[in-house]
Nucleic acid binder design. Structure first.
Length: 431
RNA sequence: GCGGUAUUGGUGAAGGGGUUAACACACCGGAUUGUGGUUCCGGCACGCGUGGGUUCGAUUCCCACAUACCGCCCCA
């Protein structure tokens, strides 16, 4: 094997691509139902678009970015996530202007790139589907986004979903809490794991979700960010919870939940699924939150935003683990069997006639024996076969056979060319 | 970026320093003339990830590299 795909990439082949198409079309329909319109932004942006928005110290920026200099010496980066590019487009195209209705609701789907060690459900090129809604601070909009995420995963057949919810509050909340957390952890500095010692000053909130057992013991007694929420932030969070309650959406408040990207504030949430496909316990498949301030950060006016991103690879793994049935969108209606080289042109014409009549059709191109062709028709689960041999060619007829019943009739080629659907309807009424 | 496990045909895999690399599935062909899910027969590995090395001889031992998977980091 001479060439192999780059590390952390995948070929999505027929057999799997149907699942992807099902996911994408389901998402498109649902988004449209929620009145989100598609936005398509470049797969690479100026490096600063991501470094400014994700946080200069975030791992994404410091070690996971696929950044490069192009021939014009521009510092670019393959997008590691979807939100930054959408916000950039939102600002650049002045979509914050009065002529667009607010909230301005968009969705995207496509590949993202992160330079990291591949594992199941984690690749260097991976795919996300996401939504963003700009221009409203309403907690009910947060809930609409959450409800959309839950709806989508439910429609895709996932079970055992858990919605985790938290609030990071506003800037005032965060700085107060950050200090409180440092003050709390500092006396225990020597007990912290090596990773957490580094995290403590770089991003103390990260210590909260350390996987180190001893860290978790220490953190258990740490102050909760929810106790530091400003009155306004508390009010926002309470209304989010109340709205979720009124929609009958269950959630668990997880005060230790944090975010890898720095731009989040107020409501953050994750939808997790419990499946061995992605390792032990619950794994996050969809995550999002509010990012008030991000539009400003990229040069726009003060304009709030909220959204989510969903990892398609993880989703597909979960769907496969849960054996979600994918509708077969292109079954085979007719397989045309040609016997003898002299029938090849006629079978081609017949195949085309069937296709133009609006049915799916296929034929043999390897000059195989009738037996082999019928075997193939059977394997492809064809509803009908149309057989043409030298005798039929002379008579200008074909044998139309129902593969389910074995019933076979002789029909005129002319009638096939005229209206094949009519031929089927009159010959096999009970179908 | 760190640690571990693995790498044999289209697939699942057995094997193990020495003439022809099991078995199964799939696929292809055949079982007298042009018709499908059963049965029977036959075919099917540029030779065991890549490159070096040890050896009289390696797919089997050693080293490096690549990739996949698992854990950490982080995250969708």
């Amino acid at each position: 094997m001479r060439y192999q795909r780059p590390k952390g990439t995948a070929d999505i082949l027929p057999g799997d691509s149907e699942t992807w198409q099902f996911v994408e079309s389901t998402a498109r329909h649902l988004f449209s139902n929620y009145r989100f319109a598609e936005i398509r932004t470049p797969m690479f942006e100026n490096f600063e678009v991501f470094s400014r928005t994700s946080g200069d110290t975030s791992d994404i920026v410091t070690k996971e970015m696929y950044d490069f200099k192009d021939k014009g010496d521009r510092h670019l980066s393959l997008r590691p996530e979807g939100t930054a590019g959408v916000v950039r487009a939102f600002v650049e195209n002045k979509l914050y202007g009065p002529e667009t209705t607010k909230p301005y609701k968009v969705y995207y789907m496509g590949p993202m790139f992160r330079y990291e060690r591949p594992q199941s459900g984690r690749q260097r090129e991976f795919h996300q589907i996401g939504v963003e809604a700009f221009g409203s601070d309403a907690p009910e909009l947060d809930v609409e986004v959450i409800a959309l995420g839950m709806d989508l995963l439910t429609r895709l057949g996932l079970k055992h979903l858990r919605l985790a919810l938290n609030s990071l509050g506003d800037q005032e909340t965060r700085s107060a809490y950050r200090q409180a957390l440092i003050d709390f952890l500092e006396p225990h500095f020597d007990e912290l794991s090596e990773d957490s010692k580094v995290r403590l000053h770089k991003n103390p909130l990260r210590v909260l979700d350390s996987k180190d057992p001893h860290d978790q013991e220490l953190v258990a007694d740490a102050p909760s960010i929810l106790d530091f929420l400003t009155p306004a932030a508390t009010e926002h969070f309470n209304r989010v919870k109340a709205s979720l309650d009124s929609l009958g959406i269950d959630y668990d408040v997880d005060a230790t939940m944090v975010r890898g990207l720095d731009y989040y504030n107020h409501t953050i949430f994750e939808i997790m699924a419990d499946s061995p496909a992605l390792g032990e316990g619950y794994t996050t498949v969809l995550a999002g939150g509010r990012y008030n301030g991000l539009v400003e950060e990229l040069g726009g006016p003060e304009m709030p935003g909220v959204g989510f991103g969903l990892g398609v690879e993880r989703l597909v793994l979960l769907m496969q683990a849960e054996k979600v049935a994918i509708p077969d969108v292109h079954p085979l209606d007719v397989y045309v069997v040609g016997i003898g080289d002299e029938t090849s042109v006629e079978t081609l014409k017949v195949v085309q006639a069937v296709r133009h009549a609006g049915l799916t059709a296929d034929r043999d191109y390897l000059a195989r024996k009738p037996k082999a062709q019928f075997k193939t028709a059977n394997r492809l689960d064809a509803r009908y076969t149309l057989t043409i041999g030298s005798q039929e060619l002379a008579d200008q007829t074909a044998h139309l056979k129902s593969m389910a019943t074995g019933q076979e009739v002789t029909v005129k080629l002319a009638s096939i060319y005229d209206d094949f659907q009519q031929v089927v309807a009159s010959e096999f009424k009970e179908d």
